[in-house]
Design a protein around this nucleic acid. Sequence first.
DNA 1: TCTTCTTGTGCATACGTTTGCACAACTGAT
DNA 2: ATCAGTTGTGCAAACGTATGCACAAGAAGA
Lengths: 340, 340
Amino acid sequence: MAGKDAKRVTTIQVAALAGASPSTVSRALSGDPRITEATRQRVLAAADELGYRPNLIARGLKNRATGIIGVVVTDLGSFYHAEALRLLVDELGENGLAPLVFACHARQSADAVIARMAGYQVDAVIALAAPFDREIVASCDRSRKPLVLMNRYPGPEPVSTVGGDFDRGGALAAGHLIARGARSFAYFAGEDGAQISRDREAGFLRRLAEDGLGCRARISSVYSYDAARQAAAALLADPPDAVFCANDTLAFALIDAARHDAGLRVPGDLMVAGYDNTTLAARPSYDLTSIDQDLPELVARAVRRARALAEDPAAAPVQDVVLPRLVARGTTERPPAMET
Amino acid sequence: MAGKDAKRVTTIQVAALAGASPSTVSRALSGDPRITEATRQRVLAAADELGYRPNLIARGLKNRATGIIGVVVTDLGSFYHAEALRLLVDELGENGLAPLVFACHARQSADAVIARMAGYQVDAVIALAAPFDREIVASCDRSRKPLVLMNRYPGPEPVSTVGGDFDRGGALAAGHLIARGARSFAYFAGEDGAQISRDREAGFLRRLAEDGLGCRARISSVYSYDAARQAAAALLADPPDAVFCANDTLAFALIDAARHDAGLRVPGDLMVAGYDNTTLAARPSYDLTSIDQDLPELVARAVRRARALAEDPAAAPVQDVVLPRLVARGTTERPPAMET
DNA sequence: TCTTCTTGTGCATACGTTTGCACAACTGAT
DNA sequence: ATCAGTTGTGCAAACGTATGCACAAGAAGA
């Protein structure tokens, strides 16, 4: 091949061409004010001519800061997580950071994932993998890596989090369903251990109770469409007026089960509200009422926090909460029956 | 904080504890056969006790191989790309590689993205960003980074690609629609420059021609749901029997436009087939007939190719093609009219 | 006992940066 | 012309790892 073993361009080469030393090159490029404008220009010209690109690995080794942020996700099959990752990648990119992405699930333990990230000297870790939060916290602690948990309601652990106000979100949903005329309710919970799901449920129940109402039924399922659709059957044998779901995935599964498996109309026979306001929720085939978390804002704050922690790992943890907002759509329209 | 400035554990510390030298530690951990079993055990014990994790950045600097693979994506909003990224992350992880992910779109030029990746000394780049392929090829060439283009039909450029057989896929769709009784056809193309879309179209038209049929209409749109749904209106004023769409996103938009904007039944008034067999296609609300690309296989091959190129950057480019498969679903059922 | 070979370990260096420190060159004052 | 002060540049060390080479220790043969 032509330039197969063409020497890579380093500060040394640039220095040689510019008639300066590597240190001068380094300083010129980093904008050190002690370098004469004339020299800087010479160096810049040389760097440009050779197509010099600083070796960020070497810089990372020296500086003990790589500009790499570890991102842990668990279930990219979920549209919500996919959307979050997309925003994260963009936001990190615009902040001059580079995301090193790993997935964490049954076959890939949280500890192994964090260990690998730590090996790559990531400056901080952002985790979007609720089911593994506890292990991730422990593992980051052990590796002394700053950590930001995303999409997580504040808890007792001393760790930085960024999330929506789940309790309030649950309450919003309850209020809305009540206002739309529902009188019997059910909650569709996520996997049993999920803190997220329990926080949302708590708010939902609390708001119902304020109006002297209770929750007639409760089912739960793993956060997967197929599992959820199966689980939904139990509820649809004797459906309530309205169901609040721990997230949109569960809501979509419930709606499909209602419409296609149980022959119910949504809305009409059943109102459904979800959580996350996924892209899909806005499409006419679902037209799902959902609690919006302002994901871009969440992501922006997570990145800001990660930067701050990378800067000063000893900083006290901050638990950041974003206010949720209800987006009313077709699945919670008043049943046509009430209009006649 | 307690261990704030606890020295990081390096080979030096391990060596000291094991009563050996750093070089011995390195060799013991890398399984060099020249090291005595006894020594190896001592080293392993020491490493374990101190919780030693090799610094992969330092290793990368020394070895000129980081184990990092650059991944370029463009539109994570698309479910197809999100799914592909999920599989990529898993596959790379299982191969002991780490994906450094960047998005490339209007605000982030391909060249800037590749330059940053090159700065991080990625061993190879996998690109899933068809619209930017040309610039990416040029940029990787300049940085001498091995490149694998994903989801790309073989072209004249000397670059490694992994993709489905788009031409054949288009033909499959045509054959299926003909068999289902359609007699007038339309093609819903992606953005005009998109090679992908043109390859699929070519196969579609060729197969139609084999039966003496033609394509009555053709519309095109950017690959975004909203834009596509608007663009679809033009076609639905005078709908053909069947529409083949360059990908599922376009198909979903078309279906929604037909059902909710134009008041048509799908199927019934209109058959629709898509491409990619996205998760969503299987759900009852769309139940979309689509061409499946065997994405997991595509991804596995891309990773394999990337590893090979990382090993030997001078290796000749390989253009890898996976056979597509048609998955027939509800949107191409025979119109009920024909059953009565 | 003295080579000769084998075997296992340590020394030193290199990877490409950044940066503390010393130093050369120049200015302006005595 | 000498000195203090300023300014810009270079030297060398460090980050943590991997590895060619030299070397010490022990075994085997003469």
